[in-house]
Design a protein around this nucleic acid. Structure first.
Lengths: 144, 144
DNA sequence: ACAACTAGTAGACCTTGTCTAGTACCAATT
DNA sequence: AATTGGTACTAGACAAGGTCTACTAGTTGT
């Protein structure tokens, strides 16, 4: 589960859950960002580990199954390319790297994320207005 | 389809789609906001119509099936209550209104949305950094 | 020998949103 | 009188994305 709020206790988690859990569909840009930030190709396993420390996951390791599935889909879409790394010792592993298409997709994601931010901001404003609340200027978000 | 980007032409839509389409899981707060903003109970049909003009949908009417399903689920969770309105003439319709629980859930959503915003902002920053791009200060979002 | 870590796969499941389609009733047009 | 279009809601199937359990298989450290 995406723990955007980075809840510290069960109670908080439950609250978050009731709110609709959290964002989805952002593992793609997360993966693209991780790969873009890396000098060399990365194994799926490493991507999972680094993803845990991306803004999307508050230190919680995401489910590997989902990430591997996403990686596969992204490769099929041409955003990533991979090579099998079969060392003499150790298990076979796949090393992923960004393609040109992946890089330009990430570039577009940056604008898209700005849109998402704006949209969420507007929704937040409307919600506050509807409740007759002054928009809390300081987001009460412990994690950030 | 959530059209956060409010794309004006097929081309733009396609680009958006490649980016992962758009946010999900935000129909709950959208519905809560619409009901909170209304003086009187609203019919599902009207909620669908108003949702079209919420930030989440760029004027595009959302799929009614999904909204009705969400309304039902929210009622089961105690966030909404509804009464059947069976006028002498015209079809039976269900009128929804916020419960206390729904109101306080919306109140918590406001903080949660702030978290989402912050998270997306951080992801956007990291993506820009990874690509060695200066963060475009003006989000290129036509709709906003 | 055992546990823990690295690396990946398989299959079922749930939620959320989409698509097609249908019912039923009303008002206004043709 | 028949058709169109709007109101109001329902049903069923589907797909994408994320979750959960569980498994293989090699490596490293105790």
């Amino acid at each position: 589960m995406w723990s955007v709020c980075n809840p510290r206790n069960e109670e908080e988690l439950k609250e978050c859950a009731q709110l609709g859990k959290s964002l989805s569909r952002l593992s793609q840009p997360t993966i693209l960002t991780i790969l873009a930030a890396s000098e060399e190709p990365l194994h799926g396993y490493v991507i999972v580990q680094r993803a845990a420390f991306s803004p999307m996951f508050g230190g919680n390791k995401p489910d590997p199954t989902g990430i591997y599935r996403t990686l596969k889909a992204m490769e099929e879409q041409g955003l990533l390319s991979s090579v099998w790394d079969t060392p003499k010792s150790g298990p076979a592993k796949r090393a992923f790297s960004l393609t040109k298409a992946g890089e330009s997709t990430l570039r577009r994601w940056i604008d898209s994320l700005a849109c998402y931010q704006a949209t969420i901001g507007e929704l937040r404003e409307e919600a506050s207005q509807a409740l007759g609340i002054d928009l809390p200027p300081t987001p009460l978000c412990s994690a950030h």
